[in-house]
């Protein structure tokens, strides 16, 4: 059987809210090491990779590897019934066709359970190579959210260029043009307010803003976001979810015809 208990149920709620518009359905692959999800959006332009570690949960048991097919809008409907302070336990029998979600209030005076019907989803796993990136930028997740939201109101695509001067986001549209540059800045005392640019070589890539804006729905999960860029390769937008794991979004670049 599979059983995973998380005291901070709000994390699970935020996670599903971050994914549900990008990814309609996907398999929760559970094993003794934790829970993983790899899923593409419907247009196959971006990929979500979620990895939650077994030791990030208060309790985790998985006797057999299983792929649990999840419809994210449906999971979201159920998680909306959990309180923000609730502890959430996920449970499934081996080869089950449903996932049980149990919500316990913090003072244990309210317990509810919901069964989510599981789906059978054929999904191919893409091989994401481990690699060095030309530029890695850590910045406040709220800053990333603001930049992509602001630029989405001006244009459809963004040119992201990382140089020793900083990281620049440029777009243009019917209204005009916009450029936002962030410089390396380690002045703030709190690490989550710093902008750290680790540059091996300058790089510039163009991406659809719609997707970058969608990734920002993960902002409530983490105070910091990391962007990784290499010429002619997908950007990685990564949010560390405390000690529990991470969610990474990969978006294919736009390339000259």
């Amino acid at each position: 059987m599979f059983e995973a208990r998380i005291t901070q149920g709000a994390v699970l709620k935020k996670l599903v809210e971050a994914l549900k518009e990008l990814v309609t359905e996907g398999n929760f692959d559970v094993s003794s090491t934790g829970l993983q999800l790899q899923a593409m959006d419907s247009s196959h332009v971006c990929l979500v990779s979620l990895a939650l570690r077994e030791d990030g949960f208060e309790h985790f048991r998985c006797d057999r590897n299983m792929a649990m097919g999840i419809h994210f809008q449906n999971l979201s409907k159920i998680l909306k019934c959990a309180g923000n302070e609730d502890t959430i336990t996920l449970k499934a029998e081996d080869n089950a066709d449903q996932l049980t979600l149990m919500f316990e209030s913090s003072n244990q005076d309210r317990i509810s359970d919901f069964d989510l019907k599981l789906m059978s989803i054929e999904s191919e796993h893409l091989g994401i190579p481990d690699q060095e990136y030309s530029a890695e930028i850590k910045m406040p997740s709220s800053e990333y959210q603001r930049i992509v939201r602001d630029l989405t109101s001006i244009g459809d695509t963004v040119l992201i260029s990382a140089t020793k001067e900083g990281i620049k986001f440029s777009t243009s549209g019917d209204v005009g043009t916009a450029n936002v540059t962030l410089r390396h800045n380690t002045t703030p005392e709190k690490p989550e307010e710093q902008t750290i640019i680790d540059l091996k070589e300058p790089v510039a890539l163009t991406f659809a803003l719609r997707y970058l804006n969608n990734f920002a729905k993960a902002t409530p999960l983490a105070p910091v976001v990391k962007l990784s860029l290499t010429k002619d390769l997908p950007i990685v937008v990564e949010y560390q979810i405390g000690e529990l794991g991470a969610v990474k979004f990969y978006l294919a670049p736009k390339i000259d015809d």
């Binding site: 593409m40 247009s43 196959h44 332009v45 971006c46 990929l47 191919e124 893409l126 091989g127 994401i128 190579p129 695509t157 163009t206 659809a208 390769l233 997908p234 990969y250 978006l251 294919a252 670049p253 736009k254 390339i255 000259d256 015809d257």
Partner: peptide, 13 residues
Amino acid sequence: MKQKSIGAFFGGA
């Protein structure tokens, strides 16, 4: 500009 699919980079369709 042309939008590539993610599978073009990581294998698959």
